[in-house]
């Protein structure tokens, strides 16, 4: 039976992200964690992204909805055109606020809105992409006691987003996509 989330991983991605997410979620089992994906992508392709990263027997994959609680074993994709916020009760809220870092949803907005103590375990991951979205978010996650990972820039179609976080000295671990999958599986395997 699904459990309200005590563990959370937030993954932010931009250009090149869909194929990298495919690689991470391929053969990823259902895990004892809620995963959020903030991917910069037009609304038309959100459902295709959802279908692409869903694998039978793996994490359930949904598009996040207003008022829905985060659950272990469920990956939630931020809807296009809205910021995705998680409140202290670990419930989703959608926000039509201004674009941040030229984008909405913004990785920084989602990560920075997480309050300290909301989750037992919290990790932020930034993948390939243009710009600097995610750097402030990872800094916030680290400041409230969470862990931070970026995709190895050498494996990125565009290295700027993870490189920005590395340059800002807010990254704990640098991993290739297959290693990110291994890390998730090792850390959050079901008992």
């Amino acid at each position: 039976m699904a459990q309200r989330a005590e563990n959370l991983v937030v993954i932010g991605a931009s250009t090149g992200g869909p194929l990298i997410l495919d690689e991470i979620f391929k053969d990823l089992p259902s895990l004892n964690v809620a995963i959020i994906i903030v991917q910069h992508i037009p609304a038309r392709f959100i459902e295709s992204l959802r279908a692409s990263i869903y694998h039978p027997g793996g994490m359930a994959v949904e598009v996040a909805e207003e008022g829905r609680p985060l659950m272990h074993g469920v990956t939630s994709i931020a809807p296009a055109g809205l910021h995705l916020i998680i409140d202290k009760a670990a419930v989703f809220h959608l926000d039509e606020g201004e674009k941040v870092n030229y984008v909405r949803p913004s990785i920084d907005v989602t990560m920075c809105a997480i309050a300290k103590g909301t989750f037992h375990s919290l990790t932020g991951i930034v993948l390939t992409g243009m710009g600097q979205d995610g750097t402030k978010g990872l800094a916030h996650i680290r400041a409230i006691g969470g862990g931070t990972i970026v995709q190895d820039p050498r494996t990125c179609p565009i290295r700027r987003m993870p490189q920005s976080a590395i340059d800002a000295d807010v990254v704990d671990t640098i991993l290739a996509p297959s290693r990110i999958r291994g890390w998730l599986t090792g850390r959050y395997a079901l008992a």
Partner: peptide, 30 residues
């Protein structure tokens, strides 16, 4: 943009800042 997916094939290994704001429309960068 709801019907067109963009994959860039380019000689520039890193895009410059003039493309900030266009990232959601560029699916991949080769």
């Amino acid at each position: 943009t709801e019907r067109v997916m963009v994959v860039m094939l380019t000689a520039k290994d890193t895009p410059d800042e003039k493309m900030d704001g266009l990232q959601e429309f560029v699916f991949d960068y080769i």
